[in-house]
Write a protein that binds this DNA or RNA. Structure first.
Ligand SMILES: [Zn+2]
Ligand SMILES: [Zn+2]
Ligand SMILES: [Zn+2]
Ligand SMILES: [Zn+2]
Lengths: 139, 139
DNA sequence: GAGCGGATGTAATAACGTAACGCTTTGACG
DNA sequence: CGTCAAAGCGTTACGTTATTACATCCGCTC
């Protein structure tokens, strides 16, 4: 979590996209959480400061942040996590602890493509592992 | 595609779970589709025969079928596909064509766990690759 | 037939996400 | 500087996905 916002600033400056105050605020909330966050939770947090937040507000910001490679969507949870490495080019592999909700992200060039069908061209991968992290008691 | 229902009958007999007519009907619809199907689409198809289908009806059937290893949920699509190999023990890897919606399932013992964090115990994996299959025109 | 557990029916609502429209801000350009 | 187009954002309304809670039914056992 240290420096995620600063990294985002640098990354956006380099790639020429606009990290507006609203988008930066949403990224800040996602990064602060340190765990998967729901869109409507972000919504209610934004609402505390400005009464004007509606669903499109937060979804647009999240779309931007995902496009910019600053946030990943956790598909099986309908939630979002901040990426610890702004704008990395490869697919993210997420290890999600079902006990403490901690998420560890690792990256690889072609993760999970062990037996790819001949001729298939992968454009996007969703790789999420659910279980128990090292810090949580194993049954 | 051929024999999915018969395989399901055998598998449920062997594991001692009840593949009721309703559950079998839902599995039949998912298998017939040959592509990811949405829960509410199943719902409307069931409705054609019995006016009594409501959301819990189909979600309960799908929960059972997933638990039994007869159906997989495609997380990034909020949809469901029939498993070609009833009750296989390993994680499924899905290759989903974004052009023709065809899904190819392959299986492996620990797919996508290239750099698993030390001490993490994986209970469930979601591995979905999106792109273009061999039969669809590549740009 | 009383009791029990699993399966299903039913109503209501929660949770998640998007379309469409208009106003405002930004930044490029003459 | 004034103009203009594109991007960003507010707002309303709606569509889609999923669950909770409670009632009922059915097959089984005692
Ligand atoms: Zn990442
Ligand atoms: Zn944990
Ligand atoms: Zn399978
Ligand atoms: Zn295809």
């Amino acid at each position: 979590m240290p420096g995620i916002l600063e990294d985002a600033d640098r990354h956006c400056a380099k790639t020429g996209v606009r990290l507006t105050p609203l988008r930066r605020r949403v990224l800040e909330l996602v990064a602060q959480a340190g765990a998967p966050v729901k869109a409507y939770d972000l919504l209610s947090q934004i609402d505390q400061t400005a009464t004007s937040a509606k669903p499109p507000t937060v979804y647009r910001a999240l779309d931007f942040l995902m496009e910019a490679g600053l946030v990943h969507r956790v598909e099986a949870l309908n939630a979002f996590v901040a990426c610890p490495q702004a704008g990395h080019g490869h697919a993210a592999v997420l290890y999600v602890c079902e006990s403490c909700a901690n998420v560890t992200e690792v990256q690889g060039s072609r993760p999970g493509q062990e037996n790819k069908p001949a001729g298939f061209t992968v454009k996007r991968s969703v790789i999420e592992h659910y279980g128990l992290c090292a810090d949580c008691p194993h049954p």
